[in-house]
């Protein structure tokens, strides 16, 4: 029972982190209508920035948010403006050319980081590294807890942005119907570019909070990309609430699966659920609640 509770709590906490990855991706998918296969790479870039800030300047990873967010925001903005947006009008045989472009971008980001930092595993040492609170027989890792709180805060922020601000309304309008939005005087192009940057900035913020938890190496990017699309599909495309649910389901599936079925298959559980959802529940978890 204790083991179950422990797995459940770890799963929930990890799920919260996953949710934040999923929300950024959902946002991008909703507006750009593409799968962003460079999403985890943005996280990786942010983690390296945070690592450098910590290693050379002694900046606490949590504070490095103020560096990682703007840097990645602008990086993503330019990527979106000069690499993704021009493809909209280009006729290509495979309609997925924007997706393929994100693959190329992902490779460049990973290899660039590998070139500078090599493939070595890196991590940060802080006062809270490896620390945990113990409640009964259950332990809660402190960095995981902070990251979880951050996820909730980021989600609330995003909700506020999307629902209550003018910008948010424009993003939602563009996601729903690009053409109609343009007719209403919204610059779909600007919103598209902004959304890609915003989604990436969100995951960049997550990077700062992930650094005390995960090892850092260039290929961590593709790994998180895989998680991001699993979460997004699980949750149902373009649904922020769905992304949270998807993140938590994935977190739980991984933790419980690893505890009770086979640890080595940890990464496969998400993918299997993903395939099942994709095929049998095309609307994602969202479609279970929506009539």
């Amino acid at each position: 029972m204790e083991m179950f509770l422990q797995s459940l709590i770890s799963g929930l906490l990890v799920g919260g982190l996953y949710a934040i990855i999923g929300i950024g991706m959902t946002l991008i998918m909703g507006v750009l209508k593409i799968i962003n296969l460079a999403h985890g790479q943005m996280l990786m870039v942010s983690m390296y920035i945070a690592w450098v800030a910590w290693y050379y300047l002694g900046i606490d990873p949590y504070l490095s948010v103020f560096i990682t967010v703007p840097v990645v925001f602008y990086l993503a903005k330019y990527i979106s403006k000069y690499l993704l947006n021009p493809l909209i009008e280009k006729d290509s045989i495979l309609p997925e050319n924007q997706v393929l472009m994100t693959v190329g971008i992902g490779i460049v980001l990973v290899e660039f980081m590998r070139f500078i930092f090599t493939s070595d595993y890196r991590s940060v040492q802080t006062s809270y590294t490896g620390q945990a609170w113990h409640i009964g027989g259950i332990s809660i890792a402190i960095p995981l807890f902070w990251a979880f709180l951050f996820s909730i805060a980021a989600t609330i922020f995003l909700f506020y942005l999307l629902m209550k601000t003018d910008l948010g309304r424009q993003i939602r309008a563009t996601a729903q119907d690009r053409l109609a939005a343009s007719l209403m005087g919204i610059s779909a192009e600007k919103i598209t570019i902004f959304t890609y940057a915003l989604g990436s900035a969100l995951i960049a913020a997550a990077g700062s909070f992930f650094l005390p938890i995960y090892y850092l190496y260039p290929d961590v990017g593709p790994e998180f990309t895989a998680k991001a699309f699993v979460i997004t599909i699980l949750g149902g495309l373009g649904s922020t609430v769905g992304a949270i649910a998807g993140g938590i389901v994935l977190g739980l599936a991984e933790t419980l699966g690893a505890t009770y079925i086979a640890a080595g298959y940890r990464d496969a559980f998400g993918l299997i659920i993903f395939l099942l959802v994709l095929v049998f529940l095309p609307g994602g978890l969202k479609s279970l609640t929506k009539v």
């Binding site: 690499l83 393929l100 472009m101 190329g104 992902g106 490779i107 460049v108 290899e111």
Partner: peptide
């Protein structure tokens, strides 16, 4: 190689 891919797609 990644740069080449980006170039070709563009």
């Amino acid at each position: 190689f990644g740069l080449l891919v980006i170039f070709v797609i563009l």
